[in-house]
Each structure stands twice: as structure tokens, then as C-alpha cells.
């Protein structure tokens, strides 16, 4: 059985009478323990897809199943990391995580939650930053804390919406490696949907890549590399170069269509 199944999902916004189509007849599924990336240019609907998966929006048409059951609204079985504002500015790194733990497991005492929070901060390399507020942390550190919080809440499904999109190139590499490392150490294999516009990131991290354009999934690629993965080896392999070309080709095809049509977006 699929962990996640999206069938014929459409999403339309009604903005003061103008109906705007965000998703159009989308279909895809994710297996348990699979790492799937959704890639595409801005405005293709990838973030809308994630917000449906997170339960922040209800599909206008179609349905979405988790473990074979139709799902509505947010749920404890899913954890989300956004590009910005995942953390609460008024809580320290430790308080943010402990708060998450106490929401997911209300029986946890404050003391236990703090202990687990510190443990997770150490896992993401932030030991010693427990008492820092988000404004005192760099963007990368904030995202590490957000990842730590989401993992500490122990969801089965992890939804990541361009989590490294606002991080500089060097730190992004560190965070990608960290994510792979932390996920490898988790007891329970997570099912992950990762939204990005970075082709290399998608290839490096995922088992399968869905290319999205025109409000639905256009192409699908299976990533052939085994785990644990080595960045240098992958980037030098022929498979990587081919896959990268294919994915970039997808982007350019979309671009050509747009240039040929009425609307030009560069």
C-alpha cells in the first residue's frame, strides 16, 4: 500500500471573482520510507501540493490518502519544515523543540521534553545553542532547529518546503549532508516529500524526482544511487550528468513554451 496517494487533485483559488487554478488533476503516490522530491520552476504548484499534503488547504477536487485513508486537515503523522518562519521567535531553540514535543506528546513532562530537545539539538550540531532565540541564530542554524523540532515530534511523514532555499551555497551543502545523516540515524524510516527548485539537491537527496509544471506532474525520474550517498562520487558519475541534463531539459522545455505563448516569464 502507498503511504501517500494523491488522486485527481485540483485546487482553485477564488480571489475576488477571479478563479485561479493552482493544481490541475494531479496524480502521484509515495511509498513508505521513500524520499520523493518535487521539482519545478516558481509558480508551478509545488508549494500548493505541499500545503495540501500538510493539510493546510483542502483540495477543490479529488482526494488525498494517507495509509489508504482519506485525509483532512493537519495531523500528527506529518511534520512540516518551511523555508521561513518555522520557528516561533519568542521561544529559544530548546523551547521551540520542547514545545513541539509537548504538542505531539501531551503526556511528556516539561523536564523530559527539554532533555529530548537538547538531544535533538546535539544531533543537528547545535549543542550549546539551547538558549538562543531564533534572531540570534543564522538562517542555517534556524533551519537545523526547525528540522530537529520536526524530527523530535516523530511524524511518519516529513514534508519539506524548500527548507534550504534561503541558505547560502556552502551552508546548503552542509545542511543537505546533515539531513541525510540525521535521517539515516532515525529509528523509524521516514517517508519524505521534499519541494525544491535545485536540481542537484533533488538528485542528491531523493529516491525519486517528480518534475512539475502546468499545475501537475509532467515527468518522473528514479534516482539510481544507493545509500549512504557520497556527494563527490555522485557528482562525477555519468548517471548524474544524464539525469541533470534531462531535468534541466524539462525546465527549458517549459520555458520555451512560455516564450512561444503569450506570457513570457524569465
Amino acid at each position: 500500500m502507498h503511504k501517500i496517494e494523491i488522486s485527481n487533485v485540483s485546487l482553485t483559488y477564488n480571489d475576488d471573482g477571479t478563479v485561479y487554478n493552482a493544481l490541475d488533476q494531479m496524480n502521484f503516490s509515495v511509498d513508505p520510507g521513500e524520499f520523493v522530491s518535487i521539482i519545478g520552476s516558481s509558480g508551478c504548484g509545488k508549494s500548493s501540493t505541499l500545503s495540501i499534503l500538510a493539510g493546510l488547504r483542502e483540495p477543490t477536487e479529488g482526494q488525498y490518502l494517507i495509509d489508504g485513508h482519506v485525509s483532512h486537515g493537519t495531523g500528527r503523522n506529518r511534520g512540516v519544515v518551511f523555508q521561513h518562519y518555522s520557528l516561533f521567535p519568542w521561544m529559544t531553540a530548546e523551547q521551540n523543540i520542547a514545545f513541539g514535543i509537548r504538542q505531539a506528546f501531551p503526556d511528556t513532562t516539561q523536564k523530559e521534553a527539554s532533555d529530548i530537545a537538547r538531544e535533538y539539538l546535539e544531533k543537528v550540531g547545535l549543542a550549546g545553542f539551547e538558549d538562543k532565540y531564533p534572531y540570534q541564530l543564522s538562517g542555517g542554524m534556524q533551519q537545523r532547529t526547525a528540522i530537529a523540532r520536526t524530527l523530535a515530534m516523530q511524524p511518519e511523514i516529513l514534508l519539506l518546503d524548500e527548507p534550504f532555499g534561503a541558505i547560502d551555497a556552502r551552508n546548503r551543502i552542509l545542511l543537505q549532508d546533515l539531513l541525510l545523516d540525521v535521517l539515516g540515524k532515525e529509528k523509524q524510516q521516514k517517508t519524505i516529500v521534499f519541494v525544491t527548485h535545485d536540481v542537484d539537491e533533488a538528485i542528491l537527496l531523493s529516491d525519486r524526482i517528480l518534475f512539475m509544471d502546468k499545475k501537475h506532474i509532467l515527468e518522473e525520474y528514479v534516482v539510481p544511487f544507493s545509500r549512504p550517498r557520497n556527494r563527490e562520487q555522485i557528482f562525477q558519475s555519468r548517471e548524474y550528468i544524464q539525469m541533470r541534463q534531462a531535468l534541466l531539459g524539462c525546465f527549458f522545455r517549459g520555458l520555451q513554451d512560455k516564450i512561444g505563448g503569450e506570457e513570457v516569464v524569465l
Binding site: 500545503s51 500538510a54 493539510g55 493546510l56 493537519t74 495531523g75 500528527r76 506529518r78 511534520g79 512540516v80 518551511f82 521561513h84 518562519y85 518555522s86 520557528l87 516561533f88 519568542w90 514545545f99 513541539g100 504538542q103 505531539a104 515530534m153 514534508l159
Partner: peptide, 24 residues
């Protein structure tokens, strides 16, 4: 985005009030 983040953590109405809206 802050609200979305809070919603995905499945906050109860009281937790939303005390831990998100009030400190905000």
C-alpha cells in the same frame, strides 16, 4: 507562514492563544 507553521504542529485553540497569538 507563522500561522501555517503553528497549524502543522496541531496546536489546540488554547495553545494557539497562549503560545502563539499572545506572545506575538
Amino acid at each position: 507562514k507563522l500561522l501555517d507553521s503553528a497549524k502543522t504542529m496541531n496546536l489546540s485553540a488554547t495553545a494557539m492563544f497562549i503560545h502563539v497569538l499572545w506572545p506575538y
